[in-house]
Design a protein around this nucleic acid. Sequence first.
DNA 1: AGCTGGCAAACA
DNA 2: TGTTTG
DNA 3: ACAGCT
Length: 820
Amino acid sequence: MFIALVSLDKNTVQWTLQYLSREHNFTQLELESQVPKERGGQRFDTHTQMIEYATQHWQSNLVTTSLHSCTCSDVDTFLRRPFTLLVALESSIENIKKSLTQQLPPSTPALDLAAFLRWFDGAYRAQRDTLSRAQLNIYNGHETEDAFVDVLREANIVDEQRIRPSWDTYFMELADLASQRSNCMKRRVGAVLTQDKRVVSTGYNGTPKGLLNCADGGCKRCNSGVEMGFAECLCLHAEENALLEAGRGRIGECAVLYCNTCPCLGCAVKIVQTGISQVVYNHGYRVDQKTLELFRNAGVVLRHTPMKRRAPSDKSTTDEECDDSDEIAQNQDQDDNSSQATLSESDLAPAEGGGDHSGSGIKSSTIKTASIPLNSPSLNQLATSLGLLITHSDIDVNDVIVKSECLPNKHKQQHAHPSVCHHWLRDSAAAGRILPIALYVLDDYNPNNSEDGSDDLPPNPQSKNACFRIHPLNSPNEHLVHALRILKQDRVARDERWNALAYSRAAAMVKSFPHRIRSKDDIRLQLSYDSNDTVHTKNIGEKKIRAKIEEYLNYGRISEAETIQNSPSHKLYNALCSIQGIGPRRAYELSRTGASSLGELVERGSITQEDVTLAQHLELGIPRTEVSSIAGVVMENARTLLPHPTHAICGGYRRGKSESNDIDILITHHGYTLQQMNEFLANLARRLQDMGFLTKLMRQLSLSDGHSDKHDYQSTLLGVVASSSKYGTTDSAQVTFRRVDIIVCHPHSFHLEVLAWTGSVMYERDLRAFVKRRNLKLNASSVYNEHTNNEVDLSGIRSERHLLAFLHLPWIAPENRNCD
DNA sequence: AGCTGGCAAACA
DNA sequence: TGTTTG
DNA sequence: ACAGCT
């Protein structure tokens, strides 16, 4: 995305630039004439050149401040591109004056008010046009950078939704637009009825056709100040209008109704009767409890979608008296089931759209919403203060998905402990998305043993351990990282294990650099943004690797890496490695038997054609949508064998990769022993094989054989599935073979397993190396003391984040663990 | 200078 | 036991 | 033909 910042306040602009480059890896593009030369970024002579450059690199994060004083047509050109966002940074007059004063040379006399006003008038007039066209306005009323950065984080500038709205947002904004046509005196309400992502009809509220408009006095009830009964109202609701307009014939199988406001009970009845399958609403802190209940019983999915495209300050939608306010049930009794913090089937309905154009890499960590019918005011208060909306679900498939029924049966009638919910909310706020609550009550919970959340360790970019650093999916130094990985591959091939490790570590270190490395001084880490203190970068030694990087900086390439990459034997070696069962050793041997191609080796009988073909299939990347649909098929079958499984999709998918190599599914179940889980896995494998989905088992299942109770490792199923178009493969007719890894584990070690199966390899390696220094040994299913062999009790661990805090490690979001 | 560098399971 | 795998 | 730590 390409962001242009316009503002009168230079300090605020600077803070924003630093925030964008630090936390979202933005590169700065500027015009040579406008900004003094400083570190970082790219320079251009004209706007056109800059925009052209951005068009070529539209998938990177780019930012400019050079748009403020350009002509209207330049702003037009900028805004016409589909990847741009114009952000106005407004600021208090106080801040603007402070910035201006700081810019003036120290010798100038103090700025008097009249002079400041003259300057302000001129500057404002020059920028007014551009400012008024901004798609996002952020106001800085704070004096310190830290306070403002919090505002920036909340605004979530990088939200892809602003650049291209999801279907939900798109239809909801149409509903909002429809509401503008309302002529009801009480409230503006709009609705849009859709079918297969197409608008069928729209509606807004007001008096029926032919009658005097409500606004002109057509409806006595709405115009009189006194409260009159609902029955007196002549106004048709927006939902009714949309339904009437469409007619029953045009409402099909999967019609979705988008409403401005959560529908009243009267409308809900009509919605159910016309066969609408989903209702999405927007302004809904006050969910009508009766509507909710009706929809739940009738099987209509009710979701909430916030107006994501607006700035956070824009919370102007006051919930004034609405025409159905008297219908809202004030549900006081907390003792019924609806106040239990559980997720139900319909609550877990995934959001429409959003995910289906996720090809462009990292998913921004927007705060997600979840549907938990929590009636506790204190929890809602806490949630709001943390910036979480506890309403209807659009839990990402990326998340650990849990069913309500996963709660232990013996506790069925009991509420989740409030303190559990508090932890859950705090964890969710810190993680930037709603974490699955059921995992917080997965096992007996001891509220005393954990005070985590606030004392999170910060990531440390200087650390030599990858588990302390941020490694985004797309680094600004991807080329260099690639070159270092080629050298690493070469050392692996030569069986120089430790040299290979050193190159891996160096590559990971470069990967964690937040800025583009342009000179050898950049290989040092900046300690802070306003000082010149630098520190030597770990894992890049003073001799060998450093020399390679300097070569890269001088000539744009590393000759050794180029030579390796172009050598035919290396190509053959790589091809051999991708075959299942052939690792570095055999690939090295085979690649120097004099053969020049895989075909030749097949003829000789060293490898089979079958293996080669399979390898070609498995080398293809798997799009995210296909990963989730394959996981869906697996889980659908899992549910027939295990009542209410808990599962998580890990691997590259969880790390946000747009294309995965395989599908890693981790499954557990509350209260099951490992043996039971292993039996379940064997049955699942059989079932998937019988239906022809799982075509090849690549590893035998290890079934724990009763007597050895020491066998508490997770068992894994590594297999190949035939994925055809019905599971989301892009190739329409053809079957593509995909790797699936299904892992079952004990519920106690679930989060540890999630951590282990999410990777990346380098992250795991350094994680274990680090905890070892505290005499802890860590594997995929347990943590124990190296000397005493005492296992650490993990049953109180409530989340992956909690686990990391427990191990004194910083929380690095999965998307930032791409160190490979 | 000398030692360490992730780790366990499954297979050949 | 060494190799391959996740 | 690696790098960090003691």
